[in-house]
Protein backbone atom coordinates (compact mmCIF):
# COMPACT_ATOMS: atom_id res chain seq x y z
CA UNK A 1 0.00 0.00 0.00
CA UNK A 2 2.69 2.45 1.00
CA UNK A 3 4.68 1.51 -2.07
CA UNK A 4 1.75 2.35 -4.30
CA UNK A 5 1.36 5.71 -2.62
CA UNK A 6 4.94 6.58 -3.40
CA UNK A 7 4.49 5.44 -6.97
CA UNK A 8 1.48 7.64 -7.55
CA UNK A 9 2.38 10.43 -5.17
CA UNK A 10 5.85 11.39 -6.26
CA UNK A 11 5.38 12.35 -9.90
CA UNK A 12 2.55 14.68 -8.98
CA UNK A 13 4.58 16.47 -6.29
CA UNK A 14 7.44 16.62 -8.70
CA UNK A 15 5.21 18.16 -11.34
CA UNK A 16 3.83 20.90 -9.10
CA UNK A 17 7.21 21.76 -7.59
CA UNK A 18 8.67 21.99 -11.08
CA UNK A 19 5.88 24.38 -12.00
CA UNK A 20 6.60 26.44 -8.92
CA UNK A 21 10.27 26.78 -9.79
CA UNK A 22 9.43 27.67 -13.37
CA UNK A 23 6.91 30.25 -12.19
CA UNK A 24 9.43 31.86 -9.87
CA UNK A 25 12.15 32.06 -12.50
CA UNK A 26 9.70 33.56 -14.98
CA UNK A 27 8.48 36.04 -12.38
CA UNK A 28 12.04 37.30 -11.83
CA UNK A 29 12.58 37.54 -15.60
CA UNK A 30 9.36 39.51 -16.00
CA UNK A 31 10.39 41.91 -13.25
CA UNK A 32 13.73 42.52 -15.00
CA UNK A 33 11.96 43.21 -18.31
CA UNK A 34 9.54 45.53 -16.55
CA UNK A 35 12.43 47.52 -15.10
CA UNK A 36 14.08 47.79 -18.52
CA UNK A 37 10.79 48.98 -20.02
CA UNK A 38 10.27 51.63 -17.39
CA UNK A 39 13.82 52.85 -16.74
CA UNK A 40 14.19 55.34 -19.64
CA UNK A 41 10.80 56.86 -18.89
CA UNK A 42 11.57 57.03 -15.17
CA UNK A 43 14.89 58.77 -15.81
CA UNK A 44 13.12 61.16 -18.15
CA UNK A 45 10.63 62.16 -15.46
CA UNK A 46 13.32 62.44 -12.78
CA UNK A 47 15.54 64.60 -14.96
CA UNK A 48 12.62 66.81 -15.94
CA UNK A 49 12.49 67.92 -12.32
CA UNK A 50 16.21 68.59 -12.04
CA UNK A 51 18.41 71.56 -12.83
CA UNK A 52 20.87 71.59 -15.76
CA UNK A 53 23.94 71.52 -13.53
CA UNK A 54 22.46 68.79 -11.31
CA UNK A 55 21.96 66.58 -14.37
CA UNK A 56 25.51 67.29 -15.53
CA UNK A 57 27.13 66.48 -12.20
CA UNK A 58 25.51 63.32 -11.01
CA UNK A 59 22.92 60.73 -11.71
CA UNK A 60 19.98 60.41 -9.43
CA UNK A 61 16.88 58.29 -9.01
CA UNK A 62 15.17 60.82 -6.72
CA UNK A 63 13.22 63.79 -8.11
CA UNK A 64 14.83 67.23 -7.85
CA UNK A 65 13.15 70.53 -7.12
CA UNK A 66 13.58 72.48 -10.35
CA UNK A 67 10.32 71.52 -12.07
CA UNK A 68 8.93 75.06 -11.84
CA UNK A 69 12.17 76.55 -13.10
CA UNK A 70 12.20 74.20 -16.11
CA UNK A 71 8.58 75.06 -16.89
CA UNK A 72 9.52 78.69 -16.75
CA UNK A 73 12.41 78.14 -19.17
CA UNK A 74 10.15 76.41 -21.71
CA UNK A 75 7.50 79.13 -21.49
CA UNK A 76 9.77 82.19 -21.55
CA UNK A 77 13.10 81.29 -23.12
CA UNK A 78 13.21 82.67 -26.67
CA UNK A 79 14.87 79.61 -28.19
CA UNK A 80 12.25 77.28 -26.75
CA UNK A 81 9.37 79.52 -27.80
CA UNK A 82 10.62 79.37 -31.37
CA UNK A 83 10.45 75.59 -31.65
CA UNK A 84 8.09 74.24 -28.99
CA UNK A 85 4.43 74.90 -28.13
CA UNK A 86 2.99 71.90 -26.29
CA UNK A 87 -0.68 72.95 -26.08
CA UNK A 88 -1.09 73.60 -29.80
CA UNK A 89 0.87 70.42 -30.49
CA UNK A 90 -1.63 68.38 -28.45
CA UNK A 91 -4.54 70.00 -30.24
CA UNK A 92 -3.22 69.45 -33.75
CA UNK A 93 -2.10 65.88 -33.14
CA UNK A 94 -5.43 65.03 -31.54
CA UNK A 95 -7.50 66.41 -34.43
CA UNK A 96 -5.53 64.43 -37.00
CA UNK A 97 -5.29 61.24 -34.98
CA UNK A 98 -8.90 60.90 -33.84
CA UNK A 99 -10.38 61.50 -37.26
CA UNK A 100 -7.97 59.24 -39.11
CA UNK A 101 -8.37 56.43 -36.56
CA UNK A 102 -12.14 56.49 -36.94
CA UNK A 103 -11.88 56.42 -40.73
CA UNK A 104 -9.34 53.58 -40.71
CA UNK A 105 -11.30 51.30 -38.42
CA UNK A 106 -14.74 51.88 -39.90
CA UNK A 107 -13.80 51.60 -43.55
CA UNK A 108 -11.42 48.69 -43.03
CA UNK A 109 -14.12 46.73 -41.23
CA UNK A 110 -16.49 47.60 -44.06
CA UNK A 111 -14.05 46.48 -46.75
CA UNK A 112 -13.22 43.24 -44.94
CA UNK A 113 -16.93 42.59 -44.42
CA UNK A 114 -17.68 43.22 -48.08
CA UNK A 115 -15.02 40.75 -49.17
CA UNK A 116 -15.82 38.14 -46.55
CA UNK A 117 -19.62 38.08 -46.76
CA UNK A 118 -20.47 38.64 -50.39
CA UNK A 119 -19.73 36.66 -53.51
CA UNK A 120 -18.89 38.76 -56.50
CA UNK A 121 -16.77 38.46 -59.60
CA UNK A 122 -13.88 40.66 -58.50
CA UNK A 123 -13.78 39.32 -54.94
CA UNK A 124 -10.57 37.30 -55.10
CA UNK A 125 -8.84 39.84 -57.32
CA UNK A 126 -9.66 42.74 -55.03
CA UNK A 127 -8.41 40.85 -51.99
CA UNK A 128 -5.17 39.98 -53.79
CA UNK A 129 -4.79 43.63 -54.74
CA UNK A 130 -5.19 44.61 -51.10
CA UNK A 131 -2.54 42.06 -50.05
CA UNK A 132 -0.12 43.39 -52.65
CA UNK A 133 -0.85 46.97 -51.71
CA UNK A 134 -0.12 46.17 -48.08
CA UNK A 135 3.52 45.80 -48.96
CA UNK A 136 3.96 49.24 -50.49
CA UNK A 137 6.02 51.30 -48.05
CA UNK A 138 5.03 54.92 -47.43
CA UNK A 139 8.44 56.06 -48.65
CA UNK A 140 7.77 54.65 -52.09
CA UNK A 141 4.69 56.75 -52.67
CA UNK A 142 5.82 59.80 -50.73
CA UNK A 143 7.68 61.55 -53.55
CA UNK A 144 4.72 61.22 -55.91
CA UNK A 145 2.24 61.87 -53.10
CA UNK A 146 3.73 65.18 -52.03
CA UNK A 147 4.03 66.54 -55.56
CA UNK A 148 0.43 65.46 -56.32
CA UNK A 149 -0.82 67.16 -53.14
CA UNK A 150 1.13 70.26 -54.10
CA UNK A 151 -0.66 70.28 -57.47
CA UNK A 152 -3.99 70.09 -55.64
CA UNK A 153 -2.86 72.86 -53.26
CA UNK A 154 -3.39 70.54 -50.29
CA UNK A 155 0.09 70.79 -48.78
CA UNK A 156 0.16 72.64 -45.47
CA UNK A 157 -3.39 71.40 -44.71
CA UNK A 158 -4.50 68.43 -42.63
CA UNK A 159 -6.55 66.78 -45.39
CA UNK A 160 -3.68 64.67 -46.85
CA UNK A 161 -2.97 63.47 -43.30
CA UNK A 162 -6.56 62.40 -42.54
CA UNK A 163 -8.37 61.25 -45.68
CA UNK A 164 -5.91 58.56 -46.89
CA UNK A 165 -6.64 56.71 -43.62
CA UNK A 166 -9.73 55.24 -45.31
CA UNK A 167 -7.51 52.90 -47.30
CA UNK A 168 -5.53 50.89 -44.73
CA UNK A 169 -4.68 47.55 -46.40
CA UNK A 170 -2.96 45.93 -43.45
CA UNK A 171 -5.96 46.63 -41.21
CA UNK A 172 -8.27 45.10 -43.83
CA UNK A 173 -6.00 42.05 -43.96
CA UNK A 174 -6.14 41.64 -40.19
CA UNK A 175 -9.91 42.11 -40.04
CA UNK A 176 -10.45 39.60 -42.83
CA UNK A 177 -8.28 37.05 -41.03
CA UNK A 178 -10.27 37.67 -37.88
CA UNK A 179 -13.61 37.33 -39.68
CA UNK A 180 -12.51 34.09 -41.30
CA UNK A 181 -11.95 32.52 -37.90
CA UNK A 182 -14.87 33.97 -35.97
CA UNK A 183 -17.59 35.42 -38.12
CA UNK A 184 -19.93 32.69 -39.39
CA UNK A 185 -21.97 33.64 -42.45
CA UNK A 186 -25.05 31.99 -40.93
CA UNK A 187 -25.48 35.12 -38.84
CA UNK A 188 -25.84 37.27 -41.94
CA UNK A 189 -28.42 34.86 -43.35
CA UNK A 190 -30.32 34.88 -40.07
CA UNK A 191 -30.36 38.68 -40.15
CA UNK A 192 -31.62 38.64 -43.74
CA UNK A 193 -34.45 36.29 -42.84
CA UNK A 194 -35.36 38.61 -39.98
CA UNK A 195 -35.60 41.44 -42.51
CA UNK A 196 -32.47 43.38 -41.65
CA UNK A 197 -30.97 45.34 -44.54
CA UNK A 198 -27.36 44.80 -45.56
CA UNK A 199 -25.84 47.97 -44.20
CA UNK A 200 -27.66 47.62 -40.90
CA UNK A 201 -26.48 44.03 -40.61
CA UNK A 202 -22.95 45.35 -40.89
CA UNK A 203 -23.39 48.22 -38.42
CA UNK A 204 -25.43 46.54 -35.71
CA UNK A 205 -24.35 42.90 -35.97
CA UNK A 206 -20.93 42.63 -37.59
CA UNK A 207 -19.30 45.61 -35.87
CA UNK A 208 -20.28 44.53 -32.32
CA UNK A 209 -19.08 41.02 -33.11
CA UNK A 210 -15.79 42.31 -34.40
CA UNK A 211 -15.19 44.53 -31.38
CA UNK A 212 -12.01 42.71 -30.27
CA UNK A 213 -10.41 43.06 -33.70
CA UNK A 214 -11.65 46.63 -34.04
CA UNK A 215 -10.30 47.56 -30.60
CA UNK A 216 -6.86 46.16 -31.37
CA UNK A 217 -6.73 47.80 -34.76
CA UNK A 218 -8.08 51.13 -33.48
CA UNK A 219 -5.29 51.19 -30.94
CA UNK A 220 -2.67 50.39 -33.56
CA UNK A 221 -4.12 52.99 -35.92
CA UNK A 222 -4.24 55.60 -33.17
CA UNK A 223 -0.65 54.94 -32.17
CA UNK A 224 0.57 54.95 -35.77
CA UNK A 225 -1.13 58.22 -36.52
CA UNK A 226 -0.19 59.93 -33.25
CA UNK A 227 3.42 58.89 -33.66
CA UNK A 228 3.63 59.68 -37.35
CA UNK A 229 6.50 62.03 -37.96
CA UNK A 230 7.35 61.27 -41.60
CA UNK A 231 4.13 62.25 -43.39
CA UNK A 232 3.37 65.43 -41.44
CA UNK A 233 6.93 66.67 -41.88
CA UNK A 234 6.60 66.13 -45.64
CA UNK A 235 3.10 67.63 -46.03
CA UNK A 236 3.30 70.51 -43.54
CA UNK A 237 6.28 72.07 -45.27
CA UNK A 238 6.11 75.69 -44.21
CA UNK A 239 3.40 76.06 -41.59
CA UNK A 240 3.65 78.22 -38.50
CA UNK A 241 4.68 76.62 -35.22
CA UNK A 242 1.02 76.78 -34.14
CA UNK A 243 -0.02 74.26 -36.80
CA UNK A 244 2.74 71.69 -36.31
CA UNK A 245 2.09 68.30 -34.77
CA UNK A 246 3.65 67.25 -31.49
CA UNK A 247 6.32 64.90 -32.94
CA UNK A 248 7.46 67.69 -35.27
CA UNK A 249 7.92 70.00 -32.29
CA UNK A 250 9.87 67.41 -30.30
CA UNK A 251 12.13 66.67 -33.25
CA UNK A 252 12.91 70.39 -33.43
CA UNK A 253 14.46 70.03 -29.95
CA UNK A 254 17.09 67.76 -31.46
CA UNK A 255 17.79 69.96 -34.47
CA UNK A 256 18.55 73.07 -32.45
CA UNK A 257 21.88 73.28 -30.68
CA UNK A 258 20.85 76.47 -28.91
CA UNK A 259 18.83 74.56 -26.32
CA UNK A 260 21.51 74.06 -23.71
CA UNK A 261 19.30 73.68 -20.65
CA UNK A 262 19.05 69.90 -20.33
CA UNK A 263 16.46 70.05 -17.55
CA UNK A 264 14.13 72.02 -19.78
CA UNK A 265 14.79 69.71 -22.75
CA UNK A 266 13.91 66.69 -20.60
CA UNK A 267 10.76 68.44 -19.45
CA UNK A 268 9.79 69.29 -23.04
CA UNK A 269 10.17 65.61 -24.04
CA UNK A 270 8.25 64.56 -20.93
CA UNK A 271 5.38 66.90 -21.84
CA UNK A 272 5.14 65.16 -25.20
CA UNK A 273 5.24 61.67 -23.73
CA UNK A 274 3.29 61.83 -20.46
CA UNK A 275 -0.27 62.56 -21.72
CA UNK A 276 -0.30 59.46 -23.86
CA UNK A 277 1.10 57.37 -20.99
CA UNK A 278 -1.74 58.63 -18.78
CA UNK A 279 -4.30 57.81 -21.48
CA UNK A 280 -2.69 54.38 -21.77
CA UNK A 281 -2.98 53.71 -18.03
CA UNK A 282 -6.75 54.21 -18.25
CA UNK A 283 -7.21 52.31 -21.50
CA UNK A 284 -4.72 49.50 -20.94
CA UNK A 285 -7.28 47.10 -19.47
CA UNK A 286 -9.42 47.54 -22.55
CA UNK A 287 -6.38 47.32 -24.82
CA UNK A 288 -5.05 44.09 -23.39
CA UNK A 289 -8.48 42.48 -22.94
CA UNK A 290 -9.51 43.48 -26.44
CA UNK A 291 -7.68 40.57 -27.94
CA UNK A 292 -9.98 37.96 -26.42
CA UNK A 293 -12.39 36.20 -28.72
CA UNK A 294 -15.91 37.52 -29.18
CA UNK A 295 -19.05 36.40 -30.93
CA UNK A 296 -20.46 32.95 -31.57
CA UNK A 297 -18.27 29.86 -31.33
CA UNK A 298 -18.62 27.15 -33.92
Amino acid sequence: MSKMKSVYGEPKDNYSSKLKIKSTILFVWFVILTLICLLPIYILIINATRDHSEIANSLSFIPGSSLGKNFNTIATNGNFKLSYDALNGYKNSLIITVSSTFLTVFFSAMTAYGIHVYDFKLKEISYTVILLVMMVPVQVTSAGFVSFMADLKLTNTYIPLILPAIAAPSVVYFMRSYMKSSFPLEIVEAARIDGCNEFRTFVSIAIPMMKPAIAVQAIFAFIASWNNFYTPSMILINVKLKQKTLPMMVSALQASDKLNDFGAVYLAIALAIIPIIIAYVFLSRFIIAGVALGGVKE
Binding site: L33, T34, C37, L38, I41, I223, W226, N227, F229, L246, P247, M248, V250, S251, I269, A272, I273, I276, I277, Y280, S284, R285, I287, I288
Partner: peptide, 13 residues
Protein backbone atom coordinates in the same frame (compact mmCIF):
# COMPACT_ATOMS: atom_id res chain seq x y z
CA UNK B 1 0.54 46.44 -19.64
CA UNK B 2 4.06 47.60 -18.85
CA UNK B 3 5.68 45.66 -21.69
CA UNK B 4 3.34 47.21 -24.20
CA UNK B 5 3.98 50.70 -22.84
CA UNK B 6 7.10 51.66 -24.88
CA UNK B 7 5.21 51.04 -28.12
CA UNK B 8 2.73 53.85 -27.57
CA UNK B 9 5.44 56.47 -27.18
CA UNK B 10 6.19 58.59 -30.22
CA UNK B 11 9.31 57.32 -32.00
CA UNK B 12 10.49 60.89 -32.59
CA UNK B 13 10.27 61.62 -28.85
Amino acid sequence: VVMYLPNIITAAS
